[in-house]
Design a protein around this nucleic acid. Structure first.
Lengths: 215, 215
DNA sequence: ATTACTAAAAGACGAGTAA
DNA sequence: TTTACTCGTCTTTTAGTAA
């Protein structure tokens, strides 16, 4: 997972538009032989971090979604280092009503057991959905769900994987759950907690809520 | 120059206060054997990126000044990638006195005519030399002199090729000239402009100057 | 407990070269 | 001109240990 080469390509603009770059040019950028440069590009492609179009006169290189998200994670790391670390990460937004799906999924034993094991609490069967404000959306994108939730198969159907990260709402510890779906909205988070957060804090749709990210 | 290990140490807080960390603990962080972890710490120390105090029960690790500036450079790179390229590129550094060669070369008709044609101004016969700070050196390396200056031959000798790129110093448009020499220092830029910049801005050796790169 | 040496295995690199 | 294969060499890693 050659992050340095990927970074170089991004600095050359391959995350914005396809970059025309021969292996020998790339070699001079990363200070290596043409062979090594070509191999690195090949590896990056195999790892799905870039996509290529190989032409007789060179190649067109684009950084993929997952390549970009890897770079974003790196940015996140470096920002954290220099954030002077009085830096609590706060996601803020307003409470909204979800589709009620959360309640169904959380109740499933296949997930519930994992929540108990990996989060250390038995979640109230329901999620508190929050529509994030713009800065929080950006911040949210840079948080990777470090706690992995496995998918499983019922007699009827398959339930997908997901991930979580721990959060704190005032004095209550909970977690944000992120289903691993292709089109999951990035401006909404779903929070689970050992209690019914709506009742506990007496909050309703439109209430502003601050959620502190805990690592 | 193992930037990934250095980053890990920074994320663990070694840039803020000495970090107590055994090689076996570090191994688990970087996902390697204890031997490799110990060797990496040793190497980082030899490269002066960290300083250590080795005790019977482990080691105390601190990131040095130069280690931190390396990390800062990485942050700059990633910020540039995601700066959405509304980002102005600023080269910053301190004014120094050059060897006075600039004055000689710029006066030569063979170059001067090209400057007038390609840059659109008649350069004052002298260069403002700036010693770049570390992040600017990195930025400088990634700027290619898009405006090519041809070499020429006098009755006596040959004068080499070079390139330029446009810059702005406050309200004055100028250009950075890059002679195409094998051993041209990468931490210094030479600026030409229609006026004597030292007089115009009343700057002297040691003054900090910001130079905006124009494309 | 540590750190870190040696030796052997694994992996990365570049020269030559095919396609 | 490209990309990228093979293969010999050099570098990095790890297991086993010493200190």
């Amino acid at each position: 997972m050659d992050i340095l080469s990927l970074k170089k390509l991004a600095l050359l603009g391959a995350h914005q538009k396809p970059l025309e770059l021969s292996s020998i040019e790339f070699a001079s950028h990363i200070d290596s032989s043409q062979q090594t440069a070509a191999r690195k590009l090949k590896n990056l492609e195999e790892e799905n971090l870039i996509s290529r179009q190989i032409l007789p006169e060179g190649q067109m290189i684009s950084i993929t979604e997952s390549g970009l998200s890897l770079l974003q994670q790196e940015l996140n790391d470096y920002q954290e280092i220099f954030s002077g670390n009085g830096g609590k990460k706060i996601l803020s937004g307003k409470v909204i009503t979800g589709l009620g799906e959360g309640q169904y999924y959380i109740s499933l034993a296949g997930y519930r057991v994992q929540f108990q094991e990996k989060l250390g609490f038995d979640p109230y069967p329901g999620t508190l959905n929050i529509k994030l404000d713009q800065p929080s959306i950006e911040l949210r994108k840079r948080i990777s769900g470090a706690i992995k939730i496995s998918g499983f198969t019922d007699q009827n159907r398959t339930f997908g994987r997901g991930s979580c990260f721990n959060v704190k709402i005032r004095d209550i510890m909970g977690a944000v759950v992120i289903p691993e779906r292709t089109h999951y909205p990035e401006d909404i988070i779903e929070i689970i907690a050992p209690v019914n957060l709506r009742d506990y804090f007496n909050i309703e749709d439109g209430s502003s809520v601050d959620v502190e990210v805990i690592k």
